[in-house]
């Protein structure tokens, strides 16, 4: 026992203050030019407006899908399978590209035949910047938002994104990094 205590004391002395290095001392926190950039990069998608949203079964007919989009001004329908998991998305672009020219032949078919299966999604814990990237580089106008359990919790489109950006337009520039490293107010 005594031997063990001596060893512990020696170990404690060895890592005494002079020897100690803060493992984060050479870590530079991200610097943002204004509050808007901070809001895009440090917030999460769940802080944005992602509801209301609606999901539809894969058995929905194309005719009903189009009527629903027209009546409610939906730009894209999220299609879910029997377990309520996201199976695909049926967007305005799908109507233009796959449906419009053969509408009369296709209108009684299920929407699952023409939807975009396995769409690109965003998780509620991702940053708004990632959503901007998916919209810009990927060209997806509407992104289904999933929770950690892969269930649909919302949908994010350009309109909601624009409102989010606008709400943070006049945010103050973030504090310089040194002050920002202190405890949060």
């Amino acid at each position: 026992m005594a031997e063990q205590k001596r060893r512990l004391r020696r170990a404690a002395e060895a890592c005494d203050t002079d020897e100690f290095r803060d493992p984060l001392s050479n870590y530079d926190p991200a610097v943002y030019d204004d509050g808007l950039e901070l809001a895009l990069c440090e917030a999460q998608v769940r802080d944005m407006q992602i509801t209301p949203f609606a999901t539809f079964p894969a058995t929905l007919s194309i005719e009903t899908a189009i009527a629903t989009m027209s009546r409610n001004d939906y730009f894209a329908l999220m299609i879910v399978n029997d377990e309520g998991r996201l199976a695909g998305i049926f967007s305005e672009r799908d109507v233009l590209v796959k449906v419009a020219e053969q509408y009369e032949q296709l209108k009684d078919h299920p929407v699952s035949e023409v939807m975009t299966p396995d769409p690109v999604v965003i998780y509620e814990t991702d940053s708004p910047a990632k959503a901007v990237n998916l919209m810009a580089v990927g060209g997806f106008r509407h992104l289904p938002v999933l929770g950690v359990d892969d269930r649909v919790v919302g949908i994010l489109g350009p309109q909601r994104m624009a409102r989010y950006i606008h709400a943070h337009f006049d945010d103050r520039a973030p504090e310089p990094p040194r002050a920002a490293a202190g405890p949060e107010a």
């Binding site: 910047a129 990632k130 901007v132 990237n133 810009a136 580089v137 624009a162």
Partner: peptide, 22 residues
Amino acid sequence: QKGLMEYIAENFPRQVKVQMMQ
């Protein structure tokens, strides 16, 4: 809408473009 999103991504390369696609 798309043009504007592309513009934001373009002007904001460090934070936006490094995000993984999927």
